[in-house]
Design a binder for these strands. Sequence first.
RNA 1: GGCCCGUUCGUCUAUCGGUUAGGACAUCUGGUUUUCAACCAGGCAAGAGGGGUUCGACUCCCCUACGGGCUGCCA
Length: 468
Amino acid sequence: MADSQIVTRFAPSPTGYLHIGGGRTALFNWLFARGRGGKFLLRIEDTDRERSTPEATAAILQGLTWLGLDWDGEVVSQFDRAPRHAEVAHEMLTRGTAYKCFSTAAEIEAFREAEKARGVSYPVFLSPWRDADPITYPDAPYVIRMKAPRTGETLIDDKVQGTVTIQNATLDDMIVLRSDGTPTYMLAVVVDDHDMGVTHVIRGDDHLNNAARQQMVYDAMGWAVPVWAHIPLIHGPDGKKLSKRHGATGVHDYQAMGYPAAGMRNYLTRLGWAHGDAEIFTTDEAKKIFDLEGIGRSPARLDFKKLENVCGHHIAMMPDAALLQELQGYLAAAGRSALTEGQYDLLAKALYCVKDRAKTFPELIEKARFALTSRPIVPDEAAAKALDSVSRGILKSLTPRLQNVSWTKDALESILNDVAAENGIGFGKLAQPLRAALAGRSATPSVFDMMLVIGQDETIARLKEASA
RNA sequence: GGCCCGUUCGUCUAUCGGUUAGGACAUCUGGUUUUCAACCAGGCAAGAGGGGUUCGACUCCCCUACGGGCUGCCA
């Protein structure tokens, strides 16, 4: 319904890659909108021309795409809307909710220095031009400042933080339009959010204080204030603000580490949000149960162990086709060589016996090593140990018996059990050298599954090679 | 410095005045097993500290400590 449609947005600055915290903010906005038949918009806050780059914008879009967060309509460039921002600033002027200020940056700086020297810890610059008669205006560059209330308090009704009270006296008349005619962030966000019809602003709580000033702009223009929801930031495992020092901070890092996007979404959704005991859920389920009420108020730490666990569940429940496709995306993102056609086919055949044993794509590939590798099989240390002379003898005696047998699990099972019994050893004792011969590893899927996947000829060839 | 926000097991969290404070990850023990993963059973483990309010506080209020954020003609 148009009258109550929810509109959210994600508004990153294109100054670098998509931060994992930004990814989560985007995810919350996306879940909230998508779960309620609303719209999720994307706006690039590129008004700072010095720091904005098209590469960064591309990286952010790529990050969102990988996370599976699709947006409605065209990506809005905040910079492109500068004329509209200036228009609103001038409208505030005519409404009398803003004024021209001719104080120079140097004057303001001097004021702040002087106040600090006097021991005033929080100098609020009060422009002398606030109530000046236009007749006294000099012919000089000016900024447009908002005429903010000097007394009283501003209440932010926040869905996550509750009601936050800000004393108006601590807020100065913020600049909405710079002397070069460009808008400041505080003006631009409000105008854009309003024009884009944003109903719910879900963003990091580093913006909580800004909300008070922005709310004043809404009031000054007579616009409806959106629903605020300021979510806590994500911290590193040590509880400190997540920074480069922690290693992976960009969502692309997580893709390159081989975490599936569905698992990332699940983990990130649960990081700082809860719905009873719900832990593992699909994205569709998340859309249904996600709400603002479940968002926590304290910063959450990244826990890679839990991330892995969650991802393991998702790899296990992902359809093979999707798994194969995303795995190839992982290989490309990680700079690893792509699968050959033959490897692809074998991996597709092997998936059923490896997908529920892996938590990440690199792990999946390692488990599927027996299918992806080709002779000669080079055993690692543990595998080499299993291939002692006695074991090689047993493998040698096994080879001819695999020649004329129907290649089914039942048949293989009975042969291997017979061989184990004939040699007076338990099945486990036979399985170890078999793993070593077949995969060159000591930890692998079931020996039967491996034999079934690579086929009779390849199995015999590998056994011959190992027992030679 | 000022202002704002936060603080439940190691971690993510449930609890919305009365619970043996629950779940998940991690960890430990046992079981199952063809190695690994998984799985099953069980264990360890929490309300930052101090004051109030109340018959009763994890829950409401205040103070302190700690953590975070904001404090630009950056976003």
